[in-house]
Design a protein around this nucleic acid. Structure first.
Length: 434
RNA sequence: GGGGAGAUUCCAGAGCGGCCAAAUGGGAAGGACUGUAAAUCCUUUGUCUUACGACUUCGCAGGUUCGAAUCCUGCUCUCCCCA
C-alpha cells in the first residue's frame, strides 16, 4: 500500500485524529493510497497578508506534503477579482486592481514560507490562477465551462441559495465556475486530482470535480476541513485589534505569541491538533502531564506556532519581551536589565506603542494627561476614565488623578525610557532622544 | 418605467417636535477575582472640561419653528414588489 516507497502517513487518518476532517468524496482514500497525488488549495488575496484562519488551510497542504503527496498553493489573482459569495450575507466591495496586486504579492510570499519547494518529486508549487484566466475570453469561457454546468446545479449550492433573498450579483454567482475551472486546469496541466479547503468551500469545490467529470470523464476528489471556531462560538483569530495576521508588520511576533498564550483553555485540545505538527502521542502525553496546568500547554502551542510562522529568533524575542513585560516584573527588574535586551524587548512591541520624543518635546507636555493621551493615541476623556479606574501606570506606578494634572516628572529608565501601561497587558514606551 | 420600505452613535436596533449625546442588546476598554484563562461582578463607551457645563453628532443640502434625530422640500444611496 505504498507508492514510490516514500509514503510516510495516511493523510486522511492524520486529519481524522486531529479532528480536522470534515468531509470527503468517496474513494478519496483509495486515490491517496494508490499513488503520489497532487492536491491544491486556493487562497483569495482579499488582504495583503494571510491570517490565522488561513493557517488551517496551510496546515492541510503541509500534511498533504508530509504524507508524501504534492501540494499546490494557488493564489486567486483571478477569483479575487470576482468575490466568493460563500459565507457572505451581502455583496462584497470589489478591490481595486492595484490593491489586488499588492495583496497577491503579499500572500504569495507568505505561502512560500510554509511548504518545501525543494524536496524532489513532491516539491510544492505556487501558482496564480490569473495566469490562465487572463487570456481566456468570455465566449470561450461560456462555451468551455458554462456549457457543462447547469444553472440549476449552481443554484442548489448553499452559498447561492442563502443569497437568493438578499440578492446576489451575476459576478459572485459565477464564482464557483471560476474556482471549478481552476480545478479543471490543474487537473489537465498538473495532474492535480485533489482539492482541499474549509467546509464552507464544499460547494465551490464539488463544482470543479463535476466539471472534470463532465468535460473529461475524469475523477477528482475533494476533502474539506472543519472551520476553526472558538468554544464560545465567536470567530477564531480575532484579537482586540482585529485579525491576527501572519505578516510581522501587521501583527508583531510578540503580539502573535501573546495571542496563543491567551487562548481559551477549552480550545486548547483543538488548537494543539490543528496548528502544531506534533504527533498524537506527544500531544496526548502533554495533555496528561499538564492536565492541571493549561498554561504549560499554551506555551507549547504558542512556541511552536510562532516558530513556524515567524522564526526561532522572533520567538526568542517575543518570549524575552513576554517574560519582562508580564509576570511579576517590577521596576527594579527593568532597571537591572541590560540596555541591549531592553531595546530588543521594546522592538518587539507593536510599532504604534513606541514613541520617540526629544527632550524639548517632552518638556512641552503640560500635564501627564497630555502626555498619556498623546502616547496612547486616545482622547483625554478616555485617559481620565482609565485613570479613575486605576488603569494607567507609568514606570509600574499607578497614576492617580492628582498626578494626572501635574507636569510629567520622572526618573527615566536608563536615562531615556519611560514605561507606560494601559491595563495590565498593554505596554507603551516613550524614548527620549537628544 | 411604476409602487413601497428604509438610511440613527463600533454593530444590531429603539426614538418620531422639547426631559436626546439619544433606550436596549452585542462588541470593546478598565477594574475586582484568577492562571497573561474562562465564568461572574462593577465601571466606562462623541469631543473638550477642575463631570458644573460647553461644543459637534442621527445619509447629504436647504427650510419651517423659540426649539428638530423627529415636520417640509430637494438630492444621494440601499432593499422589496410590479412592468
Amino acid at each position: 500500500m505504498t507508492f514510490g516507497g516514500n509514503m510516510k502517513k495516511n493523510l486522511i487518518e492524520e486529519l481524522r485524529w486531529r479532528g480536522m476532517l470534515h468531509d470527503l468524496m468517496p474513494h478519496t482514500e483509495e486515490q491517496l493510497q494508490k499513488e503520489m497525488t497532487t492536491g491544491y488549495i486556493g487562497f483569495d488575496p482579499t488582504a495583503s497578508s494571510l491570517h490565522i484562519g488561513n493557517l488551517v488551510q496551510i496546515m492541510l497542504l503541509k500534511h498533504l506534503q508530509l504524507a508524501g503527496h504534492k501540494p499546490i498553493a494557488l493564489v486567486g489573482g483571478a477569483t479575487g477579482m470576482i468575490g466568493d459569495p460563500s459565507g457572505k450575507s451581502a455583496e462584497r466591495q470589489m478591490l481595486s486592481e492595484e490593491t489586488l496586486q499588492k495583496n497577491i504579492d503579499g500572500v504569495r510570499k507568505q505561502l512560500a514560507n510554509f511548504l518545501d519547494f525543494d524536496c524532489g518529486e513532491n516539491s510544492a508549487e505556487l501558482l496564480n490562477n490569473y495566469d490562465w484566466f487572463k487570456d481566456f475570453n468570455l465566449l470561450q469561457f461560456l462555451r468551455e465551462v458554462g456549457k457543462h454546468i447547469t444553472v440549476n446545479y449552481m443554484m442548489a449550492k448553499d452559498s447561492v441559495k442563502n443569497r437568493l433573498e438578499s440578492g446576489i450579483s451575476f459576478t459572485e454567482f459565477s464564482y464557483q465556475l471560476f474556482q471549478g475551472y481552476d480545478f479543471y486546469w490543474l487537473y489537465k496541466n498538473k495532474n492535480c486530482k485533489l482539492q482541499m479547503g474549509g467546509s464552507d468551500q464544499w460547494g465551490n469545490m464539488t463544482t470543479g470535480s463535476e466539471l472534470i467529470r463532465r468535460k473529461d470523464s475524469g475523477e477528482a476528489y475533494v476533502v474539506t476541513s472543519h472551520l476553526i471556531t472558538k468554544s464560545d462560538g465567536t470567530k477564531f483569530g480575532k484579537s482586540e485589534q482585529g485579525n491576527v495576521w501572519l505578516d510581522p508588520k501587521m501583527t508583531s511576533p510578540y503580539k502573535f505569541y501573546q495571542f496563543w498564550l491567551n487562548v481559551d483553555d477549552k480550545d486548547l485540545p483543538k488548537l494543539l491538533r490543528f496548528f502544531t505538527l506534533f504527533s498524537k502521542e506527544e500531544i496526548e502525553n502533554w495533555e496528561k502531564e499538564y492536565a492541571t496546568n493549561p498554561n504549560a500547554l499554551k506555551k507549547i502551542l504558542a512556541e511552536d506556532v510562532t516558530r513556524r510562522v515567524h522564526s526561532e529568533e522572533a520567538l526568542k524575542e517575543a518570549q524575552k519581551a513576554s517574560d519582562l513585560l508580564f509576570g511579576k516584573s517590577t521596576w527594579t527588574d527593568f532597571e537591572n536589565t541590560e540596555e541591549a535586551l531592553l531595546q530588543e524587548v521594546f522592538d518587539a512591541l507593536p510599532p504604534q506603542c513606541v514613541k520617540t520624543f526629544s527632550t524639548t518635546d517632552f518638556e512641552s507636555f503640560a500635564t501627564n494627561y497630555d502626555l498619556i493621551s498623546q502616547v496612547m493615541n486616545t482622547s483625554k476623556g478616555d485617559i481620565r476614565r482609565l485613570v479613575k479606574d486605576n488603569g494607567i501606570s507609568i514606570n509600574k506606578d499607578k497614576v492617580t488623578h492628582t498626578q494626572g494634572d501635574a507636569k510629567p516628572e520622572y526618573k527615566f529608565l536608563k536615562d531615556k525610557y519611560l514605561l507606560l501601561q494601559k491595563g495590565k497587558k498593554e505596554y507603551f514606551v516613550v524614548i527620549i532622544e537628544n
